[in-house]
Design a binder for these strands. Structure first.
Lengths: 208, 208
DNA sequence: CCGTTTATCTCAACAGTGCAAAGATGGAGC
DNA sequence: GCTCCATCTTTGCACTGTTGAGATAAACGG
């Protein structure tokens, strides 16, 4: 009975026993994450929202971290996808970089809690989840690839460090905005996206 | 009786009733933060370590956030101090910037939990603590000031965005390293500091 | 020097969290 | 039809932040 789905009753979309509770949990977790924020996502609340008991999730995830890792992975997939889409049709290395960075930041602003989860402290045991690490690397690979052509002529080592620099700028600007440590409004820019564009532009200009 | 102080008994350094419990709490909190990490810092554990009951801290801080804000503020002070020291005697704008950034990252690596607290999600209500916001701005001001001379000839707007760019690079590189999303070992650099130096150098080279 | 006030701390309790051990349940495969 | 086993429930533990009512002792006014 896959009805058109009232907003948040994930339980009805899945069979009771021996259904795909795992997917239901991930789906509900993502929904709670986006609505209540990262601190509003508890295993007990998640279980209740999915229509099962508080201990049920432990049949599918060893602990909360493993659940969060699975949720974060879907986030990384979406991020990489969006970045790839937004950068298609970019003319030249510089414009491609600009578009990639802009896309990254837009994702973070539009999916704040998800971004906090993806790059927050809770998943710093990232190595424990090899799948996660690989998925997380895709975005980085996009920037790296965009630079690789240009760097063919120059030193390869320099290209790697330049990638790191751009990646750092991108990530740093994003976190500062998301965690509200930097207020775009204070810079005479109308919108956040305008502010981002200008900063990235000026930075990219230095790269020639 | 201010004895030479065995490592962690903060309670003995202060009077029982009507002593400076507030300072004792902050001191103990900092110690716990550095040893047990940010998740290992609970109000109850803190109270026990300080030799008071779990409800005692509430006489000095409205809630846990306010305590954390106070702890973070000492961190921001130490950061600004260290950056200012490390940048003294730098020849020219570029070297000064390099030293400031290096200092920032070294602080983060040497005081990981403190850095996580200072720039983490828990204090994103930063505006609620005006003192904190002001102290936090000092480090940014250092970079901004280092660029101001150079920017006098150029457009002032550009200078502001350039400051943001450098600040973002600095902060991004730091968080990626601290949260273990970027492994310096994978870049052929021996130590983290060497890796940082090289990245900053290459970045600064782009600025001329 | 004594009595009152007030900041400070204790005691006890509530609601919430992640997690684990033991038992019930029902679908899958022989 | 029977057994097996993944799945889910029940129950409980230890921990968290926070609160309200009371004890206590320092500070202050007389």
């Amino acid at each position: 009975m896959t009805t058109a789905a009232a907003p948040a009753d994930f339980q009805k979309k899945f069979k009771y026993h021996h259904g795909n509770l795992r997917d239901a949990l991930l789906s509900a977790a993502t929904h709670i994450l986006e609505t209540k924020g990262i601190d509003g996502l508890s295993l007990r609340g998640l279980a209740k929202a999915t229509g099962v008991t508080q201990a049920a999730p432990y049949s599918h995830f060893r602990d909360k971290d493993e659940l969060l890792a699975a949720v974060a992975e879907t986030g990384f997939q979406r991020l990489a996808l969006q970045m790839a889409e937004d950068a298609t049709g970019a003319a030249g290395t510089r414009q491609r970089i600009e578009k990639l960075v802009s896309s990254y930041i837009r994702f973070a602003v539009n999916n704040k809690p998800m971004f906090q989860l993806m790059f927050g402290r809770e998943l710093s045991n990232l190595k424990k989840y090899p799948t996660l690490a690989m998925t997380a690397g895709k975005s980085y690979a996009l920037i790296s690839a965009a630079l690789s052509k240009r760097a063919a002529g120059e030193g390869r080592q320099d290209a790697r460090f330049l990638t790191v620099a751009i990646w750092s700028l991108c990530h740093g600007l994003t976190t500062l905005i998301v965690e509200e440590k930097l207020d775009p409004a204070g810079f005479g820019a109308g919108s956040t996206s305008e502010f981002v564009e200008k900063t990235v532009e000026i930075f990219a200009a230095q790269l020639g």
